[in-house]
Simulated assay, not measured.
Amino acid sequence: MSTQKTVRQEAGTVGENPVRLDEEKAEQIIEALNTDLADAYVLYHQLHKHHWNVEGAEHLDIHVFLQEAYEEIEAAADELAERAQALGGVPHASMSALTEAATVEPEDEDVYDIRTSLANDLEMYGDIIESYREHVELAEGLGDYTTAEMLREQLEDVEEHAHVIDHYLEGDTLVTESALN
């Protein structure tokens, strides 16, 4: 590793941006994007944990769904970070910065039954949905229609995942609790 350090832009600062968004407006939007980025990574890790640990008769379907979900969340996180950078900001990248900026609470390290795990995921998705809606309004109110549109598209995907999880949690299933014991 090189010992020479040249800082091009300090974390937490906002510089000029090529999309000509006022610096004060960009600062507010970048803060919102960094919150969404942090929340996305918390959700990503929790979904990945559940993907690794799912068991039972519906293992394969849920395993595949969770992989698709965490991969989409990771892609969304990349978009959020790139937009923050395009607006002249520095996207959070360290675990400590992401942890500090996150507004959602991750599950602990224990492994739970899949129903509990999915209920925890649905709760986190709900919190993220509410945050996205606020940030869409913020971006639109500040005249950043591109960020608002990106968040709207991501919100659609997040809502779809929440909808699927809600269906997994329905009581109507071919596999009964007594059949598993």
Rank of each mutant, 00 (worst) to 15 (best):
M1C: 09
M1H: 08
S2D: 06
T3R: 02
Q4F: 07
Q4E: 13
Q4P: 02
T6Y: 06
T6E: 06
R8T: 03
R8V: 13
Q9N: 08
A11N: 02
G15C: 07
E16D: 12
N17W: 09
R20H: 07
R20I: 02
D22K: 15
D22L: 07
D22M: 06
E24T: 01
K25Q: 10
K25W: 04
E27P: 03
Q28A: 12
A32Y: 00
A32R: 07
A32E: 01
T35C: 04
D36Q: 11
L37H: 10
L37P: 13
A38K: 00
A38F: 01
D39C: 00
D39K: 00
A40H: 03
A40N: 11
A40K: 00
V42A: 03
Y44Q: 01
H45A: 08
Q46N: 14
K49A: 12
H50E: 12
H50L: 14
H50G: 02
E55T: 14
G56I: 00
A57W: 06
E58I: 01
H59F: 15
D61I: 05
E68Y: 13
E68S: 11
Y70L: 04
E71D: 15
E72G: 11
I73D: 06
E74I: 01
A75N: 11
A77W: 00
L80Y: 15
A86Y: 05
G88K: 00
G89C: 06
A93N: 08
S94K: 02
S96A: 15
L98T: 06
T99N: 14
E100L: 06
E100Y: 04
A101P: 14
A102F: 12
A102N: 04
T103C: 02
V104C: 03
E105P: 05
E107A: 08
E109Y: 15
D110F: 04
D110K: 13
V111S: 13
D113K: 07
I114D: 08
T116M: 14
S117Q: 12
L118S: 01
N120Y: 01
N120K: 04
D121Y: 00
L122N: 09
E123T: 12
M124L: 09
G126Q: 09
D127A: 08
I128D: 06
I128W: 00
I129E: 11
I129K: 14
I129C: 10
S131R: 03
R133S: 04
R133L: 07
V136C: 05
A139I: 04
A139S: 15
A139H: 01
A139C: 10
G141H: 02
L142H: 14
G143M: 05
G143C: 07
A148V: 05
A148G: 15
A148K: 08
R152G: 13
E153V: 04
E153M: 14
Q154K: 14
Q154G: 05
D157T: 03
E160Q: 14
A162T: 12
A162C: 10
H163T: 06
H163S: 11
V164R: 11
I165E: 02
Y168D: 00
Y168C: 00
E170H: 06
E170I: 04
E170F: 08
L174H: 09
L174K: 07
L174W: 13
V175L: 14
E177L: 12
S178E: 03
A179D: 11
A179V: 04
